[in-house]
Design a protein around this nucleic acid. Sequence first.
DNA 1: CTCCCGATAT
DNA 2: ATATCAGGAG
Length: 215
Amino acid sequence: MRITKKIKDEMIRRLEILYHDTKSALNFNNPFELLVAVILSAQCTDVRVNITTQRLFKKAPTPHDIVNIGITDLELEIKDCGLFRNKAKNIFSTCKILCDKYNGQVPSDYNELLALPGVGRKTANVVSSIAFNRPAIAVDTHVFRVSNRLKLAIGKTPDEVEKKLQKAIPREKWSNAHHWLIWHGRKICKARQPLCEECSLKDLCPSFMERQSQD
DNA sequence: CTCCCGATAT
DNA sequence: ATATCAGGAG
């Protein structure tokens, strides 16, 4: 069944009320720290990333420092986050580029962000919107799952869901809505056992309706 | 599509 | 035991 524009607006309205004061769960003090944290966050909890970055930035706070400690030590530093060989290689290469091309700074241009190794659309959107205040909806695992369950934006890929979310949500709310959807996914609309009974959107949610009518 | 991958929740 | 965790590259 199709979800009307009116219902989607009501979903957004309720999410905004519920999660209006939420922000990034990743700890960072500047765009560079955010960039590294987001690269590390792939297939890893934010709690684990925050423990790792705190330790890492104490030893190597700048791109230059990370290039100096080298890939092998970097691998050991970030091992707990998983996918550590890929992440270490990407963070190292990205830091080298930041030093060589950008004077040790993170570029604010979207396409330049996207061109960095280990930076895909999701990471570029997060850095772009949080660090540089550009409207963007980063579609991570939570945003993807919640959007599909609510049928707020249906898609087989994150890119597809991103495009549909951009149509469903006014541009000035994009960056905030990204956080509303994440927090809803973390607290209520969880991957394994969603807390549908506690969900303030259950009367609007097609997935909950379907689940109801089964038993 | 597959591979990368340790920590954690269920 | 196994699904999942703020994905991206080949």
